[in-house]
């Protein structure tokens, strides 16, 4: 599918720039052009597709679905699955949290959604397909869904309502099943398109600088670091690699789109995929800014428990990945 991009990169670097195939600079540049074009195209496709899905299935519908239907234990899975198709900006996490709680959705289910939504988002999926291929992406998405579900179920066992801030407890006490019908928007696709389009451009504009810088760094490393370089330091036998990678990743945030391309090069140079994925999940899924926002609705203790449980789940999935691959 992307042969033509490779041909273009070859043509540009070897013929137009006159660089010799096999040289460090030539290989780094070739990698940079090939990866940038391919990844931006994939990002565009995935973000556009998700934009269409989301236009017909916004978060309000998700909330009403979870709030109204008896789901017999599948609500954690459903919430986690909805998290995949609903884009999420960490600045929405508080209103979303309150909205869910007010709709009578249990805390654990709300957490399942809050965990999966940033972890498996359109930008991460687009980058993953471009960098690691479809198979790894599918595995990533499935493990993200399972992770959100599992962490939600674990968190539900803690009786966390105690640790909410007082005004949220009040909201909780007055929770009711959402009765208002979702205003059935009968907007035709033709009218939705400009709005979806604007949103696609908006997201792309936000991530492109990070992606380009990430790929540039990746390209340099690709050309200059020898194959298998990291194997001696971070091989599968090192039991601490996964937890260290995860804990380093948790505080990082907005540069997720820049970190993925670098992580891909690290994997190609010998870092085990599970360790890299744990790192990426830590970057994408949890962040300090998110914790600061959540302080408005949760006590520090609850945020600690929340982050702790998710971090543990990420570490476990890192180990599982390393066992599979």
């Amino acid at each position: 599918m992307f042969d033509w991009v490779q041909q273009f990169a070859d043509w540009l670097v070897y013929e137009q720039f006159g660089l010799v195939k096999g040289e460090h600079l030539a290989e780094a540049l070739n990698f940079f052009f090939y990866d940038s074009i391919k990844i931006l195209l994939l990002l565009f496709i995935v973000i556009f597709f998700m934009g269409i899905v989301n236009s017909y299935f916004p978060v309000e519908k998700v909330r009403n679905f979870l709030s109204r239907n008896k789901l017999y234990g599948t609500e954690y899975l459903m919430a986690s699955l909805f998290g995949v198709v609903t884009p999420f900006c960490s600045c929405s996490s508080v209103p979303l949290f309150i909205g869910f709680v007010r709709g009578g959705i249990p805390l654990g289910v709300t957490f399942a959604f809050l965990i999966t939504s940033p972890l498996v988002n359109e930008v991460a999926i687009g980058l993953f397909i471009g960098l690691f291929g479809l198979k790894t992406t599918i595995i990533y998405v499935i493990s993200g869904v399972i992770l959100g579900m599992t962490a939600g179920i674990i968190l539900s066992k803690f009786r966390l309502e105690r640790f909410l801030t007082p005004w949220v407890k009040e909201v909780l006490a007055n929770a009711q099943k959402e009765s208002e019908a979702f205003e059935a928007e009968q907007t035709p696709f033709r009218q939705r398109l400009p709005i979806i389009w604007a949103e696609v451009l908006n997201i792309l504009r936000g991530v492109i600088p990070y992606v380009i810088v990430g790929i540039a760094i990746g390209g340099l490393m690709h050309g200059y670091i020898p194959e298998g370089f990291f194997e001696q330091y971070m091989n599968k036998e090192n039991p601490f690699a996964v937890p260290i990678a995860t804990i380093l990743a948790v505080p990082m945030y907005s540069n997720a789109s820049g970190i993925l391309p670098v992580a891909q090069v690290l994997v190609s140079k010998g870092i085990p995929l599970g360790t890299a994925i744990a790192f990426m999940m830590g970057v994408v899924g949890l962040s300090i800014p998110e914790a600061m926002l959540l302080k408005k609705v949760m006590s520090l203790k609850l945020i600690g428990i929340f982050f702790g449980v998710v971090t543990l789940c990420i570490i476990v999935s890192g180990y599982v990945f390393n066992m599979i691959f």
């Binding site: 309000e60 929405s92 979303l96 408005k296």
Partner: peptide, 29 residues
């Protein structure tokens, strides 16, 4: 946030004109 929740929106930003929520969850053009 408490005032925002009075409008019953769960995705921000939202634009309210004369008390009606016109836009929610995205940046309008």
């Amino acid at each position: 946030i408490m005032k925002i929740m009075e409008y019953n929106v769960i995705s921000t930003p939202a634009v309210v004109i004369d008390g009606d929520i016109k836009i929610k969850g995205r940046v309008p053009s």
